[in-house]
Every structure is written in structure tokens, then in C-alpha cells.
Write a protein that binds this DNA or RNA. Structure first.
Length: 405
RNA sequence: GGAGGGAUUCCCGAGUGGCUAAAGGGAGCAGACUGUAAAUCUGCCGUCUUCGACUUCGGUGGUUCGAAUCCACCUCCCUCCA
């Protein structure tokens, strides 16, 4: 079974430039390919992780991945899939974000002995000469054809700046550059990158008269088509300071039934027989699949130790036994004793405002043990504490440990 | 450069002098039902010292007893013309 078969079987593959040639190529040769990641935030999120999984599968099959940090392209901003113009980011922010990306990527891809490369397109894009670029690259692009590309269509309604319109040329140039520098012959990316990838492959074929290939993989969406990995706090980040391993674990533990099998296939390395077996479980049973998914994904991103802790915390809170040490914890000073519980909740950020906290309490959504706290003036007293700790529950499944220091 | 249109609470989007903290939808939160799921139904959804007070409708200033709503200037965006 070739990597392409694997990728197909697991549900990654969306579009390919030359299906048969790619199949043959991946089977018979070890190729160099790349995926680009624009550092628009200070951490990767699950969407990026999907790309890392593709890379990992490819690397396991002996191909050489290039992680391309888009330090140059992020200066412009990709209009694909966006309805609004992006905020311009400062060069410092982009550079910082790029460094964060680098650190995280090293966990998923093996960069030892040149088995993978990490490059930054800022290195060649930022110093480009405008007129030269236009003459060398710009000539090969037909505006007429670009305008028919899907990625620009919706933006033609809403407005598209010349800055963003250039993004496609820059990405195409990246591919060409990598082809020249490292003999990179394939670009992969999320399905929204299809137009950009095609542009690059075309450019290489024209300028170098050499073959170049592209493949897009599925975007992570829920069964009803929404983008996956959205939480109340925004994206599901891979950085444990932005999304704790516990919250990360819980996200997958609570995934829709309909999405379990897909996620197991895409986001874990479990063999497909196992994925299918787990995905076929019905009713209550499917919770087993969700636990497996949550553990496996958390483990890949945060490591075994953190994944186990998250799992234990969840078991302790929902299963009713075991150590609670790893449950989400906030600390308050001893002086908080004797003040209103409401104030403590607000102070620790468990509720975002006192109004919200008051509402929560009045609606009966706050619990200590199994009893609801109905009184907004309820006091946070010492006798509630067990070992300096109070475990409260907000709604059905948001637990918080309040520890007095 | 000229002509017109627009900027509303997290998002979309009503509202053109008092009854508007501002319709409706989405998101979010809570309750019921459940399987730590989905769907559904119900309530909430600016802040605070919450039966009351305060702040909000791009910015600044003005008219008025009273403005998101009227006027002036400014900023940004869109459309058409050049």
C-alpha cells in the first residue's frame, strides 16, 4: 500500500493535479514536497495539525517534507477563504510567530539528518526586486484567468486589494524557489489552497520545463460543515498555555458522534481497522471511541504524560473517582475567604463578569458537589474547603478547583 | 478628482427625535431530555454596589427638555463616473 493509498483511505485527499503520475511517483521515488504555514498567530492550531499529520505520513513513507514558514507571505495575507481583508501584521509579530511555529513543528516531524527541512520564505520574498519580479514571474500570470479562480470570486463581491491579489504570485514563486533550491516537486495544502498550488505547479512547468505536482487535503470541518476546532475561547491551539491539555482533551472527548471516525482517521495513527471498529460503535458505546480519540490526539500534541493527566482528571471529575490534582485549577489568596463566592468566580476568571456570574447562580447553573448554589450572595467560607480546595461545577461539565494559597 | 451609499451591542442585521440597552438571526451561557454526543424545547445573553444606577450605536462638536436617529466637520469602507 502506497502513502497515497494511505492518505486516501484515511480521508485526507481532496484534489490532485495528476492522479496517476502522482501515484506512480510516490510509489517509486522518494520525493521532496512542501506545505506552507503562514504565521498569523503565535501558535499552531488543529487545522495546521492536520497538515502536520499529512507530512508525518509522507515522511514515514520515506519522502522529505519541507515545512515552509510563511514569514514573507504573511506580510501580504492570503485572501483564500476569507471574506474580509486581513489585518496587516508587523514584521516583528510575524517573526515572533514564526519562531513559535518552528518550536511546535519540531514535535511532529523528524528534522534530524536532513530528513526534513524548515525554511522561511521571508528569506527570499522580502528582498525581491519589484520590477524584476514582475518581469520574471508576473508575465506568466493572466489576470483574466486569475479572476476566474474560486478563491478570488467571493472577494470580487466584497473587495480585494491589490496587495492580496498578489498573494497567489508569491506562493507560486515559493514553489518555484523550493523547486530550484531543494528539488521540491510537490506542494500540499488544505483544499482552499488549490488555486495557489496550481499556480505554482504551472509556473514551474513554464519556467523550468519540469513536472510539478499538487495535492490538497480535506479541511477539518464538522459533519454539518462548520470549521472544526472552534471553542468558546476561539481556536483550539496546540500551545498548552493557550489551550490547556485538559481542555484540549475535553474538546475531542465531546466531539459529535458523526465526526469520531473521521477524526480518528485524520488525527491519529491508529490502524484503519481499529478506526473503523471504533467508529462503528453505537449509542453509549461510542464514548469508548471518543476517549480513544481524545487520548490519542492529546498524546500526539502534548505527550503521553500530559495526555494521561488530562485523562485522569476527566475520569476523576466525571467518573467520580481518582485524583483531582490535574483538574483545571485556579488559586486565590487566603484573604478571599469570607468574601462572596461570586466575587471569587469573577476574580479568578471562571466567569467573565459579575453579571454573568450572578446570572449563572440565579439560573441554578453553579454547583458545589451536587447541590446548586442559588444565592448570589453565597459566601466563600473556610468550612467549604477540603484540603484548602473547593471543587465547583459550572453547568454540566465545567469543573474548577479553587485552591486557597 | 466628481456623484452617491454606508459605518449599530461578539458576528450578521433592523431601527430615521422620546414607548430603545436598542427587533430578528447566529454564536455563547444555563435548564430539561441524554451517552461528558447531536437534535429539540425553555430561560438568559452591556456593566455595576441589580427591584436601582451607569455606559453604548465610527470620531469630535452642535441643535433639542430629550438623539443611534437632526446639523457640521473628521476618519474608514463600498458603488458609479474620470
Amino acid at each position: 500500500m502506497t502513502v497515497l493509498d494511505t492518505l486516501k483511505e484515511r480521508g485526507f485527499v481532496q484534489q490532485l493535479t495528476h492522479e496517476d503520475e502522482i501515484a506512480e511517483l510516490l510509489e517509486k521515488e522518494k520525493i521532496t514536497f512542501y506545505i506552507g504555514f503562514d504565521p498569523t498567530a503565535d501558535s499552531l492550531h488543529v487545522g495546521h495539525f492536520l497538515g502536520m499529520m499529512v507530512m508525518a505520513h509522507m515522511q514515514r513513507a520515506g519522502h522529505r517534507p519541507i515545512c515552509l514558514i510563511g514569514g514573507g507571505t504573511a506580510m501580504v495575507g492570503d485572501p483564500s477563504g476569507k471574506t474580509d481583508m486581513r489585518k496587516m501584521m508587523t514584521q516583528e509579530t510575524i517573526a515572533y510567530n514564526g519562531e513559535q511555529f518552528k518550536k511546535q513543528m519540531q514535535r511532529f516531524i523528524d528534522f534530524s539528518d536532513g530528513k526534513a527541512l524548515m525554511l522561511n520564505n521571508a528569506d527570499w520574498l522580502l528582498e525581491l526586486n519589484y520590477v524584476q519580479f514582475l518581469r520574471e514571474i508576473g508575465v506568466h500570470f493572466s489576470v483574466n484567468r486569475m479572476l476566474t479562480a474560486d478563491c478570488f470570486k467571493q472577494r470580487l463581491e466584497k473587495g480585494l486589494s491589490f496587495l492580496e491579489f498578489n498573494y497567489m504570485l508569491m506562493q507560486a514563486y515559493d514553489f518555484l524557489e523550493l523547486n530550484r533550491q531543494c528539488d521540491c516537486i510537490m506542494q500540499m495544502g488544505g483544499d482552499d489552497q488549490w488555486s495557489n498550488i496550481l499556480a505554482g505547479a504551472d509556473l514551474i512547468r513554464r519556467k523550468e520545463s519540469k513536472p510539478a505536482y499538487g495535492l490538497t487535503f480535506t479541511l477539518l470541518t464538522t459533519s454539518d460543515g462548520r470549521k472544526m476546532g472552534k471553542t468558546e475561547k476561539g481556536a483550539l491551539w496546540l500551545d498548552s498555555d493557550k489551550t490547556s491539555p485538559y481542555d484540549f482533551y475535553q474538546y475531542w472527548r465531546n466531539i459529535d458522534d458523526a465526526d469520531v471516525e473521521k477524526c480518528l482517521a485524520l488525527l491519529t495513527f491508529l490502524p484503519m481497522e481499529e478506526v473503523k471498529r471504533l467508529g462503528a460503535l453505537k449509542d453509549k458505546e461510542i464514548n469508548i471511541a471518543k476517549k480513544t480519540l481524545a487520548y490519542e490526539v492529546t498524546q500526539l500534541i502534548h505527550g503521553k504524560e500530559e495526555a494521561t493527566k488530562a485523562q485522569q482528571a476527566a475520569e476523576a471529575l466525571f467518573g467520580g473517582s481518582g485524583a483531582l490534582d490535574n483538574a483545571p485549577t485556579v488559586t486565590v489568596p487566603a484573604s478571599a475567604i469570607g468574601t462572596k463566592l461570586l466575587d471569587v468566580l469573577s476574580f479568578t476568571g471562571i466567569v467573565s463578569s459579575k453579571s454573568e456570574g450572578r446570572r449563572l447562580i440565579q439560573q441554578g447553573g453553579l454547583y458545589i458537589g451536587d447541590t446548586t448554589v442559588g444565592d448570589p450572595d453565597f459566601l466563600f467560607t473556610a468550612d467549604l474547603l477540603d484540603n484548602n480546595t473547593l471543587l465547583i461545577r459550572k453547568g454540566k461539565k465545567n469543573y474548577h478547583r479553587i485552591v486557597v494559597e
